[in-house]
Design a protein around this nucleic acid. Structure first.
Lengths: 176, 176
DNA sequence: TTTACTGCAAATAATTTGCAGCTTA
DNA sequence: TAAGCTGCAAATTATTTGCAGTAAA
């Protein structure tokens, strides 16, 4: 897996997450710390399984990973990413270069995930708020396509992520 | 549930779906016809359960609903919609006024789903293709907010859809 | 010490699949 | 007829939960 600056850059842990956690009555435990570190190291939207597995030896229970993620998601430390392949992924959410709001470009063949920045939808959100009276509007936007490598191989390339757990191609195709 | 032109408009069945199905070696069966009719009548992204239940008496097996949906999705007759609440929904995909490409505005409290049109991302897609060499680029975009009714009730309003199966508010919050 | 957190196993829930019988072409 | 469907029940898979023991604060 060659390095891809836009794909596999280790993320940064949201600063002050410990304080944030404590301020909400939570405890800073080794498990939670490890889950966050694993997510940061993975540097891309990852499933609970991937996160648990990446912890390897010092693994913490899958149930704990789920519980930690749920907690972090409610704290706004983690955001969920759904790419229509039936798997729910999570990534760190923050406001620095690596964790701030962004989107993804997902290869429909191999599952490669590219980070996409610079989408400007705030004006559109404003018009939605005005036209329909909604508040607190936010959005999720994902792109799908065929990556360069897959174009040349013609066949479904080797999945970049979680080798061995390739999702069925059929479900990967977003009904556009 | 008052009528909402943008939410609950019965959709139209994709024309020629029978021919399309047959041309791919599939058979036009009563079950498949009913599943499509149910989706058209529901007129909004619906889960397999909702589709099966809406068929009421003349119900067809849940497994069959899943199989039909999968088939239709691969044919491009149905597209999947994920709103981050852990449920996978499906809606008719076509090119007429009701089924063409569009997005949704999902109320984070009651789950009301509003259809959103007029998003212009093709230029952005083109730049993605140019910059990263991807082809066949498409996208999925969903908006989340608090609908007017929920703003006034302060509490989680009655869910517009599938009463009784309200998802946990915690999971409804998209990690922005 | 107190009470939240964790591991483990059992429980749920959403999908999928095997198979034998039923239908469409 | 023949192959593709369908219902039903069992099997999977992802995720959640109960509980008793462990560890933050």
């Amino acid at each position: 897996m060659e390095p891809d600056p836009q794909t596999c850059c280790a993320q940064t842990l949201p600063a002050h997450w410990m304080d944030l956690l404590r301020s909400q009555g939570g405890r800073v435990t080794r498990s939670r710390q490890r889950v966050l570190e694993a997510m940061a190291q993975l540097g891309r939207p990852s499933t609970a399984q991937e996160i648990a597995r990446s912890l390897g030896r010092r693994a913490c229970n899958l149930a704990t990973v789920y519980r930690s993620i749920a907690l972090f998601e409610n704290m706004g430390l983690v955001r969920r990413v759904e790419l229509g392949d039936g798997q729910t992924r999570f990534e760190l959410a923050g406001d620095d270069q690596h964790t701030h709001h962004h989107h993804h470009l997902f290869c429909k063949r191999c599952g490669r995930i590219l980070k996409v920045e610079g989408c400007e939808l705030s004006r559109f959100e404003a018009s939605l708020a005005r036209d329909h009276g909604y508040t607190e509007i936010e959005h999720r936007l994902e792109f799908f396509g065929i990556c360069p490598r897959c174009q040349s191989t013609r066949t479904a390339g080797s999945p970049q992520h979680s080798p061995g757990t390739m999702v069925r191609p059929d479900r990967r195709r977003p009904a556009q």
